[in-house]
Nucleic acid binder design. Sequence first.
DNA 1: TTGATTTTCTGAACAGTGTTCAGTAGGCTG
DNA 2: CAGCCTACTGAACACTGTTCAGAAAATCAA
Lengths: 218, 218
Amino acid sequence: MGVTERRAREKEELHDRILKAASALFAEDGYASVSLRKIAERIEYAPSTIYLYFKDKDEIVTSICRQNFLLLTEALDSILVRDLPPLEMLRACLRSYIQFGLDYPDHYVVTLCLPEPAPRSDRDVHDNLSVLDVGLSAFNRLAGGLLGCMQAGVIRKADVELTAQTTWMMIHGITSLLVTKSSFPFLDRNRLIEHYLDRVLLSLGAAIVPQDPDEKIL
Amino acid sequence: MGVTERRAREKEELHDRILKAASALFAEDGYASVSLRKIAERIEYAPSTIYLYFKDKDEIVTSICRQNFLLLTEALDSILVRDLPPLEMLRACLRSYIQFGLDYPDHYVVTLCLPEPAPRSDRDVHDNLSVLDVGLSAFNRLAGGLLGCMQAGVIRKADVELTAQTTWMMIHGITSLLVTKSSFPFLDRNRLIEHYLDRVLLSLGAAIVPQDPDEKIL
DNA sequence: TTGATTTTCTGAACAGTGTTCAGTAGGCTG
DNA sequence: CAGCCTACTGAACACTGTTCAGAAAATCAA
């Protein structure tokens, strides 16, 4: 037979084309100008066809952002394998997180700045969580870094979950503001970020904040 | 004459009624369900009439949020007059900021979480800044508190502007996430906040973080 | 090859949104 | 009373996400 297999493959193909088209629009003109009609036009199908592959627009956007966040986990992984001293590694991870937000402002905003849509079903609740889950899976790597620092004795020992959540909140603070309020007269970006990282590490009880004047965010 | 005065007064009255109606809708059903047609219906005018009083929807929303942020400055002022020890005062201010976000989530999100609209004119740039200005005028009080702490020698001496901006970013981090991602499995809110405040103060170089088990955010 | 069935897709419509503008009603002035 | 000027409106425009009856196409059975 193989006909059902081919159909399944074709179905998946269109599924991906929709995602790709949406992703392109996303990257080209920003989130605001991603509409179902524009997506439909790109893939040369009627707008209503999209609903045979996604339950609504949010599912498309969510899917794109989830995929995008894998880039962050990859970036973090590439740091983790570098086998740096614990504190420097942690600092590099935090910087990488900020860099990710600056590199993909729209994706960052959609997943972590916009309020989650009011859930109408139990599925919606689950969906909301699963999006954050990707962000958190990225942050779990940071939590690992935190634990490593604690075990190495370079930061204060404390509840890892509590420390991870608050560290995430801190790093989200600077990332979100730099991304969403770019017209605000912030001080020199690099100076701001490095000072911020100093403070985050200091708040973790790091006695000596590592210096690394080479690593810079563009 | 007095006729022109009356007219001016009437014009201002309708201006306020629009703002009040929008503000009510804002508070009742959240930002998402504030539409010009709903506002128009409330004040019993045609939607197009609103454009004689505001240049667009954004001006209405912005106006409401700006007004709302005065509540934050008031709250901060009421702390400043209490004449607490510098560090306790600072901590109380920071907590008050978070509380404000929790009390008025929609206002907070609109002014500080959503990306600023792409400016099409020079006026827009100015408008974007003026909104942040209110938030900053609130934060200037915090900056004053920071300076007070520095002069009192309870936190490390540093560039006040740099310290103020990074402190704001930190406090925005927890506020925005608590507000926008309420379905995330955060740890106990009070514990999280107090731990966060501990860390923020610690990052300022505060040797001893003040304890105040009484003050709690509900 | 034909006919029936199932799957895939579409056009049109619905109910909204912000915004613009020609044209109208009403009060004020000369 | 005529003319003017301001305040206001209704209808339209160009969008948005979403639904659904029905058409088209592909598959299967006889």
